[in-house]
């Protein structure tokens, strides 16, 4: 029994770190551009599909780790220019536009990749014995890669000029421009980074989930819940909330339906919103 819970915790951790990676991408796009990107989950899905395709074409899964985030970055920049920029200053239109993008991405994948869920081979093909179970070593690696990517993202944000500029533009766009910061390019760059993070999440997740065109639908709500529970704009809070939620959903769905697990997440979110409207990790009073 405790063994099972140990495995569930580990699974939840790996999945939670992947969700955290995606949710951070969602959060910086929202925080900087006030753009609610409904298509963010589908970017994750595209990442997984591209990972599958990479294996299909080259036979090598690891190439996807380099290739797909680069494609994601370029795609993010294009989306910012082509989809987001035209509806800037209109939150309602931005939701419609990104919803449209979401449909295009899903249907595009359905038309080319097909509707059948596909599974990738375990890229490591190694198991380790943990809690008396044979545990796929790749899941541990997935958790590690996601954690490293998250740490890298925070280092980038804190320690580089570009990261400082991203934070500055977010706090006061006009003054940042007056200080010589190219805010428009920062917006594009931020969207690129956010998309790259979602697609990297897709690559990491591809071997431990079934790859199909609806993959993003399940992930997006969880990311939004993580962003809200973590506190809007609180990036470390978002990451922590994502891990907590995934672990919790993993534990609950072992004993009940996955739908029940999602309901629990929503209940938790509602309670957090009632008790701590600024997020679980915000100081109670400011």
């Amino acid at each position: 029994m405790y063994d099972l819970i140990g495995v569930l915790l580990l699974n939840g951790l790996a999945w939670g770190l992947i969700i955290a990676l995606i949710a951070l991408g969602l959060s910086i796009i929202f925080g900087l551009l006030d753009f609610i990107n409904i298509a963010h989950g589908d970017l994750f899905m595209i990442g997984a599909v591209l990972a599958w395709t990479t294996v299909d074409v080259t036979g090598n899964f690891w190439i996807a780790f380099v290739l797909v985030p680069l494609i994601g970055f370029a795609a993010g920049c294009l989306i910012e220019r082509g989809v987001m920029r035209p509806v800037e200053n209109s939150p309602a239109l931005s939701i419609v536009a990104s919803f449209g993008l979401s449909l295009i991405l899903q249907e595009g994948v359905r038309a080319t990749f097909g509707t059948t869920p596909k599974r990738l081979m375990d890229p490591l093909g190694v198991t380790v014995e943990l809690f008396g179970f044979q545990y796929e070593a790749y899941r541990l690696l997935a958790a590690l890669i996601a954690a490293l990517a998250i740490a890298g993202f925070f280092l980038f944000l804190r320690r580089t000029k570009l990261g400082t500029w991203m934070r500055a533009v977010r706090q006061d766009r006009e003054m940042a421009i007056a200080m010589g910061v190219p805010a428009d390019r920062i917006f594009m760059f931020t969207f690129g980074i956010g998309a790259a993070m979602a697609m990297l999440g897709g690559v990491v997740a591809a071997p431990i989930t079934s790859v199909e065109f609806r993959l993003g639908l399940d992930v997006l709500p969880l990311c939004f819940i993580a962003v809200i529970i973590g506190g809007l704009g609180n990036l470390p809070g978002t990451a922590a909330a994502a891990v907590l939620l995934a672990v919790m959903e993993g534990l609950v769905s072992a004993f009940a339906e996955p739908t029940t697990a999602r309901i629990v997440s929503l209940v938790v979110m509602s309670v957090v919103l009632l008790v701590r409207p600024n997020g679980l990790f915000a100081p109670a009073r400011r």
């Binding site: 400082t164 934070r167 500055a168 706090q171 006061d172 006009e174 003054m175 940042a176 421009i177 007056a178 200080m179 010589g180 910061v181 190219p182 805010a183 428009d184």
Partner: peptide, 27 residues
């Protein structure tokens, strides 16, 4: 382009100071 004005040598000390409160003094 607005962001190219400051590098030309035209600076502003704005009304209300408008610092970036969550950036450090050095940043």
């Amino acid at each position: 382009d607005p962001f190219r004005v400051a590098p030309l040598g035209l600076g502003i000390v704005p009304q209300g100071r408008r610092l970036f409160p969550k950036l450090t003094v050095y940043e």
